[in-house]
Nucleic acid binder design. Structure first.
Lengths: 229, 229
DNA sequence: CGCGACAGGATTGTATACAATGTTGTCCCG
DNA sequence: CGGGACAACATTGTATACAATCCTGTCGCG
């Protein structure tokens, strides 16, 4: 059994991390089957470890576990997509407001670093990395607000958003988030809670409107429907 | 190996359910160690199954997994307690508002049933069951709002609240939630979203104020501190 | 008598073997 | 030639064996 690309993982944490990253960066497409043996071989661990990793990701809704059938990269339905962004709309603006009240210069620097990374990724044509940086930006704000519980919810929602974008993003709308993010940093730096709240709300609305969620609500993308027989 | 108190469990689901119920009803106190062999014997399954159940509960923050040390019923810190109720304050009022717009008579009946069950449990002196019914009431509202994603967050927060109440509830304040719940049902039945939002907000504030969270913020209840050496 | 090293036992972490289940290709029959 | 039963295979579900780690009680030394 090969040692794989990294050293000792603490009980599947590393495997889950790697898989989550791959999903986040759209290297693993929604619907992809994750064979336990295969994943295990790739990372040089036994199925036991792979299994715990898959379970964790399943709980985060990044993959779907189907009994006796295996693990698949999740395919959020349109309804689920809506719900995720509604949840974000409930959590993030208020969190950004809280963050504004306690943003330090160091925080501003960190946020700016994320934006820079994102720019660089876009320039390099690495859309996956750019998307991930964009997600980390949102997460960083939750962290600044010093609300671990809410931050964890947001982390999960951001991760799921990545899948949603993979499925429903309509190209014509370039999701050029840089401006929105930059404005947010400005508001935070000035400790303008009202403005941060407002900006975040608008930013999330922009995000949703860059998606194509026009199908009938709550229609799971089934094979029958996809092939329109 | 004994078959245990129930039939075929689908990969630890049943075990997790049972343990969660026990925690919810305060039959398992915070800090209790959950020995894998022991739990396995009780439910007639192997450690493999127990392990998956423990992992799931760990993700829900109902138990804490400490590497090489085992699983323990979680002991939310005061800080965590505050955060959980802040998250609920962010999610539940708006959810109750949404629910109000789509509450059907059948929903009202279901909610009333929860309240009745709660009353009955209180009358029977079964505080654990009463607490559980109270939690289910909140969950039912999220369900009525037809927002599965948010409902799941609320479910987790309600479960954690149960642990928090176990740790920090001060007896003098009888957490007599019946009135608040009854008023909420009334608002929902009348489809009064504004009032539902307001009532839920107040209800959650009452809940928090019935707790004793006066310690220094973010101070984990360590042994050193508990014994004041 | 107190304190630290050490060893035994208990418990968790990981891998693997076996059972159960689902999938798919093939063959036979209409 | 089409369709359904069946069998071989692949994959996941579960149990168990072994390794690694931690806790605890004991012993010896200062």
């Amino acid at each position: 059994m090969d040692d794989g690309p990294f050293m000792k993982s603490g009980s599947g944490d590393e495997v889950a991390e790697q898989l989550a990253l791959a999903i986040h960066e759209h290297r693993l497409a929604p619907g992809t089957k994750l064979n336990e043996d295969e994943v295990g071989e790739i990372y040089g661990v036994s199925r036991t470890i792979v299994r715990t990793a898959l379970q964790r990701l399943s709980h985060d809704r990044l993959i779907t576990l189907r009994r006796n059938r295996g693990a698949f990269v999740a395919q959020p339905t349109i309804r689920e997509a809506r719900e995720v962004f509604e949840a974000r709309a409930l959590l993030e603006p208020r969190t950004a407001r809280s963050a504004a009240e306690r943003t330090t210069p160091a925080d501003v620097a960190r946020l700016q670093a994320h934006i820079d990374e994102e720019h660089r990724a876009v320039a390099a044509g690495n859309a996956g990395l750019a998307l991930r940086q964009s997600g980390l930006f949102h997460l960083e704000i939750a962290r600044i607000a010093d609300q671990d519980t809410i931050a964890e919810f947001i982390a999960q929602l951001v991760a799921r958003s990545s899948l949603i974008i993979a499925l429903y993003w309509q190209r014509r709308n370039a999701l050029c988030e840089s401006h929105a993010h930059h404005a947010l940093v400005h508001a935070l730096a000035e400790r303008d809670g009202d403005r941060a709240d407002e900006l975040m709300k608008g930013h999330l609305l922009d995000l949703v409107s860059s998606l194509d969620l026009r199908h009938l609500p709550s229609a799971p993308r089934s094979l029958r429907e996809a092939l329109g027989a």
